[in-house]
């Protein structure tokens, strides 16, 4: 808050003048942003007119501009379709569970990994932990299904060993969503930890030294030095994660689910995918995408506003 610019009580003319002086002083910074902004304009803003087809009956021959408006038909269709509403509910439930359970996991993973003193062990573990991120769900799903198989799966092996009846976990409504959460965490925890490890790496060692001098123990340092230092990164990651709340993991679910668990596992993306199988409907799909993004941006704005009230970290 060093500049006059943000002070509301300044008079308009003075404000304008101060702004101008400041802009001149910082012209180098504007110049830096110029090329990225031009690129963004060309490759993102120019094609943005494509959003219009969400409100049209798109006809390829007429093109995006000349296709007829359809009076929000696609959106009416969405909200009159009980299966879409069910998918919306499932998406939110799965996504929220993932945010609550999966989001914190890499943070804990990174903080605990940081406590390991043996550098070599640390490096090797880290390199291994991010391997599953590169495996496609097409491959992984086969293994997940095997692990939970009623006939060959290891879990059912133990269940039957102790006299229980095997459970078909992947076809069971109560166990399917927990499996989604668990396998997602397993696949992404190491990959997700990278950004936090990067943040931890840049913590000023003097902070630890100071804490030690105050007699802080290990856990005390974790909670009172490491965690607060990476908090800005955690917050920004959290806000951005909220923005994609309506993406609950299309690839994962598509490869793992079956009609028996549609009730809890059919999400917006899988439902739209199945609906579009026969004939790809660009206009309808764009409407769904637009809906998802609007929800995302509303959540980001809200979360940002709330967080800004409590701290100075946030997107702006």
């Amino acid at each position: 808050m060093q500049t006059a610019l943000q002070k509301a009580e300044t008079t308009p003319e003075r404000k304008t003048k101060a702004t101008w002086v400041q802009m001149k002083k910082m012209k180098g910074l504007y110049f830096m942003m110029l090329i990225p902004m031009v690129m963004l304009f060309i490759f993102h803003y120019i094609p943005m007119y494509g959003i219009l087809i969400a409100f049209k009956n798109f006809s390829p021959g007429l093109g995006i501009w000349d296709s007829p408006w359809n009076n929000f038909e696609h959106f009416k269709r969405l909200f009159s379709d009980f299966l879409f509403l069910r998918a919306l509910k499932n998406t939110i439930v799965i996504s929220l569970l993932k945010i609550v359970i999966v989001f914190p996991a890499p943070i804990i993973f990174a903080i605990l990994l940081n406590e390991i003193k043996n550098e070599k062990f640390k490096k090797v573990t880290q390199s291994i932990s991010y391997l599953p991120h590169f495996m496609s769900w097409v491959i992984l799903s086969a293994m997940v299904i095997e692990v939970f198989s009623p006939q060959r799966g290891i879990i059912n092996f133990f269940i039957t060993l102790f006299g229980g009846d095997p459970i078909n976990f992947m076809a069971d409504k109560t166990s399917f969503v927990p499996i989604l959460i668990l396998t997602d965490m397993w696949k992404e925890i190491g990959w997700g930890a990278i950004i936090y490890l990067a943040s931890i790496a840049s913590i000023d060692p003097q902070l630890y030294e100071a804490a030690e001098m105050d007699g802080a123990g290990r856990f005390h340092k974790m909670i009172h030095v490491t965690l607060p230092s990476i908090m800005p990164m955690v917050i920004i990651m959290f806000i951005l994660r909220l923005g994609s709340i309506l993406n609950a993991g299309f690839d994962q679910i598509l490869n793992l689910y079956n009609p028996l668990v549609y009730e809890v596992a059919d999400i917006i993306d899988t439902y739209v995918y199945r609906s579009g199988l026969e004939q790809f409907q660009f206009d309808y799909a764009t409407a769904v995408g637009l809906f998802k993004n609007v929800v995302g941006i509303v959540l980001i704005l809200t979360a940002n506003a709330i967080i800004r009230r409590k701290s100075e970290h946030g997107i702006w």
Partner: peptide, 13 residues
Amino acid sequence: LIAMFFSGGMIPD
């Protein structure tokens, strides 16, 4: 930020 959330989609791209 807007560019992160809104894109024209496949056809105009």
